[in-house]
């Protein structure tokens, strides 16, 4: 959690896993849903796509694995431009795993392990490999005990985890989660974030993209934050740069993270050495203690 990644641009270029170039898209040819999006996902980086309801987050995500086809602009995944033939799409969907917002839409098989096996089976992997992957995915999410349960009996939080396991079993290089914490109680959503974190640490060459409107999560967790508003990217960068910017917060219809807001207040009043702002409550308390002692 401490410190931010500071790569050089050259290294960054080599590690680009997804590149979206000037993407325009509209559903009904009357109004643009996405207006010239430029975005990239970097290997080993946790990116959060922040945006209010209806800002185009989901629409953007659906472009990353070729479910929607852009009207203008191109998308590069692992160095290759997306082409929309059946074979190429399968290849892309293997690399880019999307976990949808509503797990009920995603979980189709009646039994948990069966649903987790759906991706691998359709990739025509051998039986042994399918079994291994199901086991590994359930293990990574720490839900082995759900394996034989019926999908419709699970709690909302369990369903989310099963949905993630189903995508993870395809071993994607880029994991995309749409509103992973929506509809969960605080405990389950914290739990889920911890699990996503540990999973991400186990696969350090993965890129993770989380779309949400939860600013607290974005501020505390992300390596990079992208703010989307009405189909346009308002700002992209390190969490404190983006979320500390009043203008961005306003035009994105968001709210400044509480820790940052409090810290800004303290900073104006007392802080002598303004450095990197704290990201979590714990870090904020540390800063406060340090200042009080002085």
């Amino acid at each position: 959690m401490s410190g931010y990644k500071d790569e050089e641009d050259i290294k960054r270029d080599a590690e680009k896993m997804v590149e979206v170039q000037d993407l325009w898209f509209s559903y009904n040819k009357e109004k643009w849903a996405l207006k010239g999006i430029n975005m990239e996902l970097i290997r080993g980086e946790k990116t959060v796509l922040l945006g209010s309801n209806g800002s185009g987050k989901t629409t953007l995500l659906l472009h990353l694995n070729g479910i929607l086809i852009p009207d203008k602009g191109r998308i590069k995944v692992s160095g290759n431009y997306l082409s929309y033939t059946k074979k190429a799409l399968t290849e892309v969907r293997k690399r880019v795993g999307i976990v949808f917002q509503n797990p009920d839409d995603q979980i189709v098989a009646p039994i948990v392990f069966q649903d987790v096996a759906l991706g691998p089976v359709n990739l025509r992997l051998s039986d042994g490999e399918v079994k291994n992957r199901v086991k590994r995915a359930l293990n990574e999410l720490n839900i082995e005990e759900l394996s034989d349960r019926k999908a419709h009996e699970l709690s909302e939080g369990e369903k989310k985890k099963v949905a993630i396991a189903g995508v993870l079993a395809m071993e994607p290089e880029i994991l995309v989660l749409d509103e992973p914490t929506s509809g969960l109680d605080p405990q389950s959503s914290e739990d889920l974030i911890t699990i996503i974190d540990s999973m991400y640490k186990q696969n350090d060459n993965m890129a993770v993209l989380v779309a949400t409107h939860n600013v607290e999560l974005a501020y505390e967790w992300a390596d990079r934050v992208i703010v989307l508003s009405e189909g346009e990217i308002v700002k992209s960068g390190k969490p404190y740069e983006v979320l500390g910017d009043e203008k961005v917060i306003k035009s994105g219809r968001l709210a400044m993270p509480r820790v940052l807001r409090i810290y800004k207040g303290i900073e104006m009043a007392a802080c002598e050495n303004p450095g990197v702002p704290p990201r979590s409550v714990e870090e904020l308390l540390k800063v406060m203690k340090g200042n009080l002692r002085q």
């Binding site: 694995n65 479910i67 399968t90 969907r93 293997k94 795993g97 999307i98 949808f100 995603q106 098989a109 392990f113 069966q114 649903d115 096996a117 759906l118 991706g119 691998p120 089976v121 359709n122 990739l123 025509r124 399918v130 189903g166 995508v167 395809m170």
Partner: peptide, 10 residues
């Protein structure tokens, strides 16, 4: 579609 479904149920 996102999970490459090609008509196979595990």
């Amino acid at each position: 579609e996102a999970r490459c479904y090609a008509g196979k149920m595990p």
